[in-house]
Simulated scan of single mutants.
Amino acid sequence: MIRSISLALSLCAMSSPTWAADTSWTDVTPRLEGCWEGEGLGGQVSECWLIADDGRADGMFLMRKNDKPNFAEILTIDDFGDGPEMRLKHVYGDMTGWEEKDDYVSFKLVSADADTLTFKGLVLIFDGDDKLRTELKMTMKNGETRLMPFSFRRTAQIARAEAPD
Rank of each mutant, 00 (worst) to 15 (best):
S4V: 09
I5T: 11
S6C: 12
L9C: 14
S10C: 12
S10W: 06
S16A: 12
S16W: 12
W19N: 07
A21C: 09
A21V: 07
A21D: 15
A21Q: 12
D22T: 15
D22W: 09
T23I: 15
T26G: 05
T29Y: 04
P30M: 10
L32W: 00
G38R: 01
E39R: 13
S46Y: 08
S46K: 13
E47V: 01
W49Y: 15
I51M: 00
D53S: 15
D54H: 06
G55E: 06
R56V: 13
R56F: 05
F61A: 03
F61S: 11
L62D: 06
L62G: 05
D67P: 00
K68C: 06
P69K: 10
F71A: 04
F71P: 05
I77M: 09
D79W: 03
F80E: 08
E85R: 13
V91A: 14
V91L: 14
V91S: 12
V91T: 09
V91P: 01
G93N: 01
T96I: 08
W98Y: 14
E100K: 15
K101P: 07
Y104E: 04
D113C: 13
A114C: 10
A114N: 13
D115V: 06
D115W: 04
T116K: 14
T116R: 15
T116N: 07
L117K: 02
L117Q: 03
T118I: 03
K120C: 14
L122K: 03
L124V: 03
I125V: 10
D127H: 14
G128N: 11
G128R: 04
D129A: 14
D130C: 11
R133D: 09
R133A: 13
T134Y: 00
L136P: 00
M138G: 07
M138Q: 09
N142L: 13
E144Q: 15
P149F: 01
F150I: 04
F150T: 02
F152N: 01
F152E: 04
A156D: 10
A161Q: 12
A163V: 13
D165I: 01
D165Q: 13
D165R: 08
